[in-house]
């Protein structure tokens, strides 16, 4: 039980420092899990990164993997809850002040003014992902099909994603 508590406390601390983006997390967790505590070997750590990127969740799902190795299912649960607790609490705090902040003229000017930058960031995500994963004619055909379906029909995007995953599995995309 003491070990589980230590694990929870550790991930809580990591959760506090990883504001600013998921990729800060990789070097940080590597140093703590592989070099300092030796809970994971380097290969396990790298496989854990790959594994957590298979899921829809953020990169911080790495905490689930590490927790699982350290203390089984309870460890995975404690690690996940604790790493996401700080950002969720902060986000709730921001959300609870949001209505009030939005009615202050200065804040509203800033918030509405930076929306084009948010659009730019969203578009940049498509670019970054496309640069590494759009490599063949097949990919571009799927992209075109996806654009047409998602832009002009009301088909749920979840089914489009699952359909594409099935196509990838059946035809062994590599």
């Amino acid at each position: 039980m003491g070990g589980l508590f230590k694990l929870a406390w550790l991930f809580l601390k990591i959760g506090v420092v990883f504001f600013g983006g998921g990729y800060v997390l990789i070097p940080l967790l590597h140093r703590i899990m592989v070099d300092q505590l030796r809970w994971l070997t380097l290969k396990e750590f790298l496989d854990g990164v790959a594994l957590s990127q298979l899921t829809p969740g953020p990169l911080a799902m790495l905490a689930t993997f590490t927790g699982f190795k350290a203390a089984g299912f309870p460890g995975a649960f404690a690690g996940t809850v604790c790493i996401f607790l700080p950002c969720t609490v902060l986000m709730l705090a921001i959300s609870s002040h949001y209505e009030k902040m939005r009615n202050m003229e200065l804040i509203r000017t800033i918030l509405d003014g930076l929306l084009p930058a948010v659009v730019g960031l969203v578009a940049a995500a498509a670019w970054t992902l496309g640069k590494t994963s759009l490599v063949s004619v097949r990919d571009f055909l799927l992209l075109a099909a996806g654009l047409l379906i998602l832009q002009f029909t009301k088909v749920s995007p979840m089914f489009v994603i699952l359909g594409a995953a099935a196509i990838g599995l059946i035809f062994h995309f590599n």
Partner: peptide, 17 residues
């Protein structure tokens, strides 16, 4: 991995839309 490779173009389309 191959399932994910199939979804990548769709994900990109989703983000573009």
């Amino acid at each position: 991995q191959s399932a994910l490779n199939g979804t990548n173009p769709i994900i990109i389309a989703l983000i573009i839309v």
